[in-house]
Design a protein around this nucleic acid. Structure first.
Lengths: 362, 362
DNA sequence: CTGAAAGCGCTAACAG
DNA sequence: CTGTTAGCGCTTTCAG
C-alpha cells in the first residue's frame, strides 16, 4: 500500500502510447496491432499492472459479480447451494458476494438494495420475501429465485412432489397409517408444496397426516417438535428438512423412543450428515449443488442477453427432482401402531392444537 | 432496468441544489443545513435514489467489501468460519465476497489479484500459499490470516496445542499406548503444530505415535486412512479434523471394528455433525465461528487505522484455544491392546510405509 | 490501427 | 452552509 499501484496511464507512458490503447490491448486485443499489443502486455506485466475492477465497472456498468442471498448460512443445505453457485460463478470468471438474510424478508430487501448496482444480478435462495416484492426486484435488476415459483421470475425448483409421493408410499407399504408432517418456515414454497402433496396423497391412500408447525428448520426446531409428534401418536414423521429430522432423531433417542422400531423418520434434502447420523436418515435426496449451479448459469444466461434485448419473459423454470434414499430411520410400523393406550378421543384433542417451536437458529 | 436509476444529479436538479450538496446530505449530514438536508433526503427517497456503491468506491478507494478466501467451501469447518465472518462483516455494514481456492496456492494468488482493489482487505483462511507469497500480499493490501503464523501478518490462530495435550492425556489415562495421527494438508500450520505437540508428548508420556498422511482432510481421506491405522495396529486414532475422523468411523464400522471397543477416535474442530455421528465424536472443540468473527474484526481494525498511518507492525496474534469434548468415540484401550497377534517386527515394517490417501473433495 | 475527448456516479478540496 | 472544480481508473465513441 506504500506506492500507488500502476494505472493504465503509467503503462501508456512507459509504452509511448495513449491510455486508450492500453485499455484496448486488454479488452479487445484484436483491435490493436500485434506488435504494440505485445509490447503493452509485456510492459504491463513487468510493471505489475492489474486492471482495477471497480474502475472498470463504473463506465461499463458490469461488475462481473453476482449476489447470492440465503436465509441462513448456518444451514448445511445452503452450504451445498453456495458451493454449487460459487463453482459456477468461478468457472465463468465471476465473483460471488454472499449475504445472509437471517430468515427475514426485511433483511433481504435491505441487502438487495445495498447491493444493487454493485452486482450484475442476484440469486435469491429460498427467499422469504413476498411475491410482490420479488417482482419489484425483478423490475430493476436481474434475478433468479431458487425454491420459489414467482411468475415471471426465472427460477430453479427442487420439486419434492414425486419424492414425497415415494416417501409416503414407502411408509404406507411399511404399514404406517398415521403420519406427522413437521412443517418449515411459513414463507417456504417447498414447504407448501410438500404439505399439499402429502394431503392429496392421504385422501387416496388410507393415511392420516397431521401437520406440526411452522417450525424453525433447525435441529432445535426438530427436537421441540418431536415431542408434539409423540403426543399426536403417529408412527412416522416426515420433515421439511434434514435438520428437523436430525433434531427429531436426537430427541427421540433422549426419550428412549426407538427409531425406527417405534417411530420412523423421513427427512428431506440429504444434507451433509444425513448418512452418518444415527440411525442414518431415510431422506428425499435433493440435488442441491446442481440447483446452485443451475441458478448461477441461468442468471449468467440472462446477463448474456444484454441489458437492451427484451428480457425473456416468463422463462421456463429449471425443475430438479428429488428421490427417496432409504436408510435406517424407517422401518415397519409397530404392531399395535395406532393405539398405544390412548383413545381416539384423546388423540383428536391433541390434533387440534397446532404445535409450534420457535427454535433458535442453531 | 428499463429506466435509468436516479443519480445524485437527478436529485440535485429536483431539489434545486448542487450535486455535491446531495452527496454531503448522505455522507456528512451534519455539514448541511437541517432544512435542505431534510428536503434532499425526502426527495431522494421519493425518487427512489440509491447511492451507487461502485461509483462511491472509485474516488474514495474504499469499497466496504471484504474478501474471504477458503481452501474448500465444502468443508463444514469453513462453514462455521464463513458464518462468523459474514456476521461480523454485516454488523459493520461490510459486504463479504467469498472465494474458494480449491486447496491450491495458485488459485489463491489468482483470486487475490483479481479481487485486489475490489475489496478493502482479505481474510485468508487456512492459506496454502507460501510465507513469502503471503508477505507479498501483505505488502500491497490489508490482510489477516487464519490458522497461519506468518510474521508480521496479523493472524487469528486456533491453537490446538493445549487441546492436543488434553486429548493425549485422555487417551493415555484410558490405557492407550500406541496412537496414530492422521495428518492433514502439507501446507497446514495447524497440522504441523498438532503433530509436533503430539511428538513432544510421546517422549514424556510412555506413548508411541505414528503419523499417517498427508491426507485430504475429507471423509474419503479418513476412510482410506482407517485401513492404514488398522495396519499400524494402534488402539487410538487422533485426526487432523473431524471430517477425517468421521471417515475413520465409517470405515471401521464397515469393517466391523468396534469404536471405541477396539479403537478409539479423537477428532478435531467439533464441526456440525460431530455430535450426532455414531458413535458421537470425542473431539477438540474449536471456536471456529469466533475465529471468523475475530478475523474480520481484526481486519476492520486495520482498515480503521487509515491507509496513511503507519501500519501496526508485528501485531499480536489473536489466539483462540481449543478444548477437549469427550463423547462416545473414546474408551479404554482393549485388554490385549498392542499385540493383536502381530509381531513387533511386522509392525515396524508397516510403520515405515507412509500411507497416503488422495481423496476427492467430498 | 491509434489518439483525443467525454464521461460513468460520486467524493473532496477549495472557495465564497 | 453551499457551489465549483477536479478528478478516481477505465471504457468508448469519434476522428484521423
Amino acid at each position: 500500500m506504500r506506492e500507488r499501484t500502476p494505472t493504465i496511464h503509467d503503462v501508456a507512458a512507459r509504452c509511448g502510447v495513449n491510455a486508450s490503447t492500453v485499455s484496448r490491448a486488454f479488452t479487445k486485443p484484436e483491435r490493436v496491432s500485434p506488435a504494440t499489443r505485445d509490447r503493452i502486455l509485456a510492459i504491463a506485466a513487468e510493471m505489475g499492472y492489474r486492471p482495477n475492477a471497480i474502475a472498470r465497472a463504473l463506465p461499463s456498468g458490469r461488475t462481473r459479480t453476482l449476489g447470492l442471498l440465503v436465509p441462513d448460512i448456518t444451514n448445511p443445505f445452503f452450504l451445498d447451494l453456495i458451493r454449487g453457485a460459487e463453482r459456477a460463478a468461478a468457472v465463468a470468471g465471476y465473483t460471488l458476494v454472499l449475504a445472509d438474510t437471517e430468515e427475514t424478508s426485511q433483511q433481504e430487501t435491505t441487502v438487495v438494495e445495498r447491493l444493487t448496482g454493485a452486482v450484475d444480478g442476484f440469486v435469491l435462495a429460498s427467499s422469504r420475501a413476498s411475491d410482490e416484492r420479488l417482482r419489484e426486484v425483478h423490475a430493476k435488476t436481474r434475478v433468479v429465485v431458487v425454491n420459489r415459483r414467482v411468475r415471471p421470475l426465472p427460477g430453479v425448483l427442487i420439486d419434492s412432489a414425486h419424492g414425497t409421493r415415494q416417501a409416503a408410499e414407502h411408509l404406507a407399504s411399511l404399514g404406517h397409517r398415521r403420519i406427522a408432517y413437521l412443517a418449515g418456515p411459513r414463507a417456504s414454497w417447498s414447504d407448501a408444496r410438500r404439505w399439499r402433496t402429502l394431503q392429496a396423497l392421504a385422501r387416496h391412500r388410507d393415511l392420516e397426516v397431521v401437520r406440526i408447525g411452522p417450525l424453525a428448520p433447525t435441529v432445535e426446531g426438530g427436537m421441540a417438535a418431536a415431542d408434539s409428534a409423540v403426543l399426536h401418536d403417529v408412527t412416522a414423521v416426515v420433515t421439511f428438512n434434514d435438520l428437523l429430522a436430525i433434531g427429531v432423531l436426537r430427541r427421540l433417542r433422549d426419550r428412549g423412543i426407538d427409531v425406527p422400531g417405534q417411530i420412523s423418520v423421513v427427512g428431506c434434502d440429504d444434507i451433509f450428515g444425513a448418512d452418518f447420523c444415527h440411525p442414518s436418515l431415510t431422506t428425499l435426496a435433493a440435488p442441491i449443488e446442481s440447483a446452485g449451479r443451475s441458478a448461477v448459469d441461468l442468471l449468467l444466461g440472462l446477463l448474456a442477453d444484454g441489458p437492451d434485448r427484451p428480457r425473456t419473459e416468463d422463462t421456463e423454470d429449471v425443475v430438479l427432482p428429488t428421490r427417496l434414499t432409504i436408510r435406517e430411520s424407517t422401518g415397519p410400523a409397530p404392531a399395535s401402531g395406532r393405539a398405544r393406550g390412548r383413545s381416539p378421543r384423546q388423540r383428536a384433542a391433541t390434533d387440534r392444537r397446532t404445535a409450534r417451536a420457535v427454535g433458535a437458529t442453531r
